[in-house]
Design a protein around this nucleic acid. Structure first.
Lengths: 325, 325
DNA sequence: ATGAAAGCGCTAACAT
DNA sequence: ATGTTAGCGCTTTCAT
């Protein structure tokens, strides 16, 4: 900015005014400064300007890691932001393991200055925020003090289970998520509810913890499928563990869906890419991202907003299940 | 930080030293300050610290928009960053139309202070960078002064065309990209080369500009498919225009692949989700993102690095094409 | 081992 | 209409 000022023969304050469109600049000065800015390709440093002005016009979306789930949300947020005049900054640490409390860390790091508001994706600790407006997407402890967007995990799990039941399956296994997470609990509850409604007892030995990640789902799935009385169907609490279950089945020599039916949850794009394409429960991930962004913008504008948006889930039938004869 | 200092009874300078692990702090002081930091949940502001230290340990990935293509790269970069100790910041404006020069804008905005290095995705103007190391992914003007990662567009287009030829198609249409973009030119060149090798003349009226986006591909596809002498097959320069072509075909009453074969390019996840699943050319998008990140890290460490990495493309056969009898 | 003070690039009062 | 000055939250000499 000093360069621009020198080149244009004005003070940095004037350049700042030009950059920020403040009043009190003569037309001739304005033109000249803008010309210099264009020539030099100058652009104000986000770090510096935000430090001083506490307003950046940038919205943050904070995620633990860029994986299929969060990037779908990102696509939704990105499409929703076009009309708003804000820019979007997505931030993630290196996903170095169980870094509990990342959401707070990121929020403090970026919140005070760099971003005007934030969307936090699947946070585990959702406490009062850092001064800037925050909306939580799919928080792992259920709706909290924060405005929240999520989808109907319970209903989705019921649908998945009922689908398998309707296909004639009775020995149905649940490869669950992480018991500490609200979404995982709801999916398990939905599974149990549907089983109960069908008058079926849940064989507890068929209920295992998959942990939502391929690595953590591998071993439980393997044990399940190598049992002599293995299940005829698996409801996995998310797509990534469902996909790993299919891979494990193949390694063991089981064919999906002939020898084993598998239903996932999330409907990340990867679920359609696997072989066979995965039957799963759709979460409208992009919508969720878009809604979260709109909610955040409303919050920033002081508009009265709903504090909790819940979107519907739906069954997506592909090719990983078959009817029992 | 002032709060922490007051609470711990030390100066901000000392707190800074603790936060940054500098030497010259007594063990007792260290413990006390760290305790206060933990209690208060303090975290240094990225904006402020970077402003002063010009080192942030954050790498940027700058994209015009978060769409399927760039988010795949993001996944790759995210997985590659785990081992490096860097954090990842992805930035996008609002994709407000033809904002030429966004890459320079973003780079200036973030480069001086906030990020130590950047990956720029499909930039159109690739000039000397802003002082920080930059690697370009799939630049639209071809390999330039910048270290670059891309994939073999020409070979991919040849494969796609040969595939359609092998199925017996002769009236093959090209729904091209944007003529100003290198990747689009290479894909067109590959198409023409394969046609020529097969001893076929290209019917120039079947070569249209699709512009890489659904909206821009719609009209050209419509005109193509409503002609009395419509093509029997379409090679679309990217998946998004291929998918739109399929949608247009359906609207018109044509069945894919029965009445029309379609091949895309990119293999974004969405290509497997469409109906029918799209046969396309795979770009190893995640690999590209991961390689770009590694290249950038090497650059930052001053390691000698290749200046251009080109990854192979491959045909992914799904269900959008059929053999002509 | 600790703190005082300067300054990173910018914006916002407040002069002029 | 323009410039001067102070200071955003932090890091870094440089004294002490």
């Amino acid at each position: 900015m000093a360069d621009v000022a020198r080149e244009a023969g004005v003070s940095v304050a004037t350049v700042s005014k030009v950059v920020n469109g403040r009043y009190g600049v003569a037309q001739s000065t304005l033109d000249r400064v803008q010309q210099v800015i264009a020539d030099l390709g100058y652009e104000a440093s986000l770090g510096a300007s935000s430090l001083r002005s506490h307003r950046t016009n940038v919205l943050g979306i904070l995620v633990a890691e860029f994986e299929p789930f969060s990037t779908e949300l990102l696509k939704g947020a990105s499409s929703a932001i076009t009309q708003t005049g804000y820019e979007l900054l997505a931030y993630s640490g290196g996903a170095r393991g169980a870094d509990v409390g990342w959401e707070r860390r990121y929020l403090s790091r970026l919140g005070g200055t760099l971003i005007d508001g934030a969307i936090i994706v699947t946070p585990t600790v959702v406490d009062a925020s850092n001064g800037i407006p925050v909306v939580a997407v799919d928080p792992h402890t259920g709706p909290s003090g924060l405005p929240t967007v999520d989808s109907d995990n319970f209903a989705g799990a019921v649908m998945a289970t009922q689908y398998l039941l309707a296909l004639g399956h009775r020995r149905i296994s649940l490869v669950g998520g992480r018991p500490d997470l609200e979404s995982a609990r709801l999916r398990e509850a939905g599974f149990r509810s549907a089983m109960a409604d069908a008058g079926l007892d849940v064989d507890e030995s068929l209920v295992v913890i998959g942990g939502y990640r391929p690595e953590t789902a591998d071993q439980p799935a393997r044990e399940l499928l190598t049992r002599p009385d293995r299940p005829t169907a698996v409801f996995a609490a998310n797509d990534l563990s469902a996909i790993r279950t299919i891979e494990v089945a193949r390694e063991i020599g089981l064919r999906v869906p002939d020898d084993l039916s598998v239903v996932g949850f999330d409907n990340v794009p990867e679920s359609a890419l696997c072989d066979p394409p995965l039957t799963t429960i759709n979460q409208p991930l992009r919508d969720i991202g878009a809604q979260a962004l709109r909610l955040l913008v409303d919050l920033l504008q002081g508009t009265d907003t709903p504090t909790h948006v819940r979107l519907p889930t739906a069954l997506v039938e592909r090719a990983s299940c078959r009817a029992l004869v």
